[in-house]
């Protein structure tokens, strides 16, 4: 962006064209969301007579939303529970583990670190079958706890990798000063590491939450009871069940997106900056 303010020759005249092309791409890219929005207030018949344009506000079928909420509300509650608890726990554990790896080169820490990094290569597919039987033997099948615990185990790995690099950049003097004041490791983590790496922790939290919100493979295999479905299985189930009423399905889809949209509105800067920066280069 350093060159942005200059009026260099040869690039400025084409800007209008660039804007047009960018908007054209976004128009297609965002078409699914436009369709979701406008279809969510239509009935099947009004969609078939007028598929493209929004219906006049007088004809909006608000009942689609109450219906959609009834269908998907419980799934959202389950997902919020799983994603929030899972994100909080995996972040906490990841910060602890990253602190261990970044603070000193303890005997054995190289091997342990390699063990974590190796997991980034391991395909989930190979593990799914034994994981299923493991959860079965632990009596965790068909429970939200299975999703939370497995989510924590898998979700922390990438965060450990990113946070370790970040904590190593924190000036050593800060830790030494804290140590002289008699701070324990836990206090150093709370008072030095967490404040210093707050932005990266925020970005990681968002990424983790998104990942858990979108996860469907594990829930699909683990969950059986309809009341315990998370959005992942819930949406699949819904898509199979109510094939005919598209308006209601789109309303349900929109409701399923709401928590993420609200989260995005509050964390937009963190989100865009985190993704643009080195955070996900790994």
């Amino acid at each position: 962006m350093s060159h942005a303010s200059t009026t260099s020759v040869g690039r400025k005249p084409s800007d209008t064209l660039s804007h047009i092309i960018i908007w054209a791409i976004f128009a297609i890219e965002l078409l699914p969301f436009y369709m979701m929005l406008q279809m969510s207030v239509k009935t099947n018949t009004s969609f078939m007579t007028n598929p493209w344009l929004p219906a006049p506000p007088a004809d909006w079928q608000w009942s689609n939303f109450s219906y959609g909420l009834g269908l998907i509300g419980p799934y959202i509650a389950n997902t919020v529970f799983v994603a929030t608890l899972g994100t909080a726990a995996s972040l906490f554990l990841a910060i602890c583990a990253a602190y261990f790896f970044a603070r000193y080169r303890m005997p054995g820490s190289d091997i342990l670190f390699a063990m974590f990094m190796f997991l980034m290569l391991m395909p989930g597919v190979a593990n799914i079958v034994p994981l299923f039987t493991l959860l079965k033997s632990m009596n965790l099948l068909n429970t939200l706890w299975a999703l939370i615990i497995v989510g924590i185990a898998g979700g922390q790995v990438f965060a450990i990798f990113v946070l370790k690099n970040f904590i190593e950049e924190i000036p050593k003097d800060l830790f030494e000063a804290a140590e002289i004041d008699g701070a324990s490791h836990f206090q150093q983590m709370r008072n030095v590491v967490i404040p210093m790496s707050a932005p990266i922790i925020g970005t990681l939290a968002i990424l983790m939450f998104l990942g858990k919100w979108n996860d469907f493979m594990l829930p699909l295999i683990v969950m059986r009871d309809k009341e315990l479905f998370t959005l992942g299985v819930g949406l699949i189930y819904l898509n199979g069940e109510y094939v005919k009423q598209w308006g209601r399905i789109m309303a349900a889809f929109l409701i399923a997106s709401m928590p993420l949209i609200i989260m995005f509105l509050f964390t937009m800067k963190l989100f865009v900056r985190g993704l643009s920066g080195g955070a996900v280069k790994g």
Partner: peptide, 27 residues
């Protein structure tokens, strides 16, 4: 002297051993 540091990595390690390495070896 700093042995307590290992406690920081222990929970993560246990989870990974049980839910990632055990299934992999079992596979």
């Amino acid at each position: 002297h700093e042995w307590q540091l290992y406690l920081f990595v222990l929970p993560s390690l246990l989870l990974v051993l049980v839910f990632a390495y055990y299934p992999a070896l079992s596979a």
